[in-house]
């Protein structure tokens, strides 16, 4: 915020107050926090409403029907309006027709693509020739880890004998995976805090620079 204008300092001041008000929750719940939180909910909803109106409703409903005369777009519009009946107890069932269209198409697209992405490509990455090299050894280890982790999720048979051993190795592998996740999570959470502190630091510096 170097060389900030009066307007930037004013809005920056609001942002600084909002930041401090939210941080006040760390001490305890209080009315200042609640005020900012509720304004945030309203602003968020209002922003989203106008975003949808300008970037989606105008482009996808008003322009095709009223400007280009593509009247067949009335079909999804009617289905979309039927969704509003979900709020009615008597006519709520009408929303099912549009929901059915939506779910049918989404599911029909989802099934083959998920088989390809999350199963076939993943199996392709798992099952490869193992060479007598360091990479090959690591590959074999990963392969064992995957098979054992999958066996941990296999509940149709009691985890005894060979299945017991593999599921035991599997749960240890999974724990390493969760540990990695936690280790990286700290980085993400701290980044957010650091960014807010950096903002406050920069704002105070620019405010002092403007005043003195």
């Amino acid at each position: 915020m170097e060389g900030a204008t009066t307007g930037e300092l004013f809005w920056g001041g609001i942002a600084a107050l909002v930041t401090l008000a939210i941080f006040s929750f760390l001490y305890k719940d209080n009315p200042v926090f609640k005020v900012v939180e509720r304004i945030w909910v309203g602003v968020t909803t209002g922003y989203w409403t106008m975003l949808l109106y300008h970037t989606s409703f105008t482009d996808k409903v008003i322009t095709p029907i009223f400007e280009r005369g593509q009247y067949f777009y009335l079909f999804p519009v009617i289905l979309g309006i039927l969704m509003w009946f979900r709020l009615s107890k008597t006519y709520g069932f009408l929303a099912r027709y549009s929901l059915a269209f939506y779910i049918g198409i989404s599911t029909g697209i989802f099934i083959p693509l998920t088989i390809k992405t999350a199963i076939l490509y993943q199996l392709h990455g798992t099952i490869r020739p193992i060479e007598p090299t360091w990479t090959g050894l690591m590959f074999a280890l990963a392969f064992i880890g995957i098979i054992c982790s999958l066996s941990y999720f296999f509940f149709s048979k009691e985890h005894k004998g060979l299945l017991g051993v593999s599921s035991k190795i599997g749960i240890y592998t999974l724990m390493i995976g969760f540990g990695t996740g936690f280790g990286l999570t700290v980085m993400g959470r701290v980044a957010l805090l650091g960014q807010r502190v950096s903002f406050l630091h920069d704002y105070i510096a620019s405010l002092l620079g403007a005043l003195f």
């Binding site: 989606s56 996808k60 999804p76 289905l79 979309g80 269209f101 939506y102 989404s106």
Partner: peptide, 8 residues
Amino acid sequence: FVIVIGIL
């Protein structure tokens, strides 16, 4: 069409 239904 799915996008339009979703928007509405």
